[in-house]
């Protein structure tokens, strides 16, 4: 697992049924692009988060395939429909096999 990886997610705590909300996500990650060389001139192998997804009760909101062209500390902003109270699940997949997850609960009142 890459060192110091920490996800941040911003989801409103409450909404009305059927509302469209804005979600922001940020995760600390180097996103080593595979294009850089070390001091000896050897190419530093790619080591990135390759997939990000956001789901709500098993239904997908968005899935993103990332390349080395996504900046360090990948950021995404997108919109989701809130059908009812429940958990938004966020998943980041690292090239090294690590999976980082975060959950945010929203209540529909």
């Amino acid at each position: 697992m890459a060192i110091g990886v920490k996800p941040r997610v911003k989801v409103p705590k409450t909404a009305s049924a059927g509302d469209v909300i804005t979600i922001k996500t940020l995760i600390s990650h180097k996103m080593e692009s595979g294009q850089r060389k070390d001091k000896e001139g050897n190419r530093i192998p790619q080591s990135i988060i390759n997939t990000f997804s956001c789901d709500f009760k098993g239904q997908n909101v968005i899935t993103v395939s990332l390349s080395g062209a996504i900046s360090t500390n990948p950021y995404f902003q997108f919109k989701a429909i809130v059908p009812e109270s429940g958990d938004f699940e966020f998943t980041w997949n690292d090239d090294d096999g690590s999976v980082y997850t975060e959950t945010k609960t929203i209540s529909v009142g």
Binding site: K6, L26, S28, Y75
Partner: peptide
């Protein structure tokens, strides 16, 4: 503060 990538490190310092 959410868009500010520096805040990731503030979170790390809180830990």
């Amino acid at each position: 503060d959410f868009d500010n990538p520096g805040m990731i490190f503030v979170d790390q310092a809180i830990d």
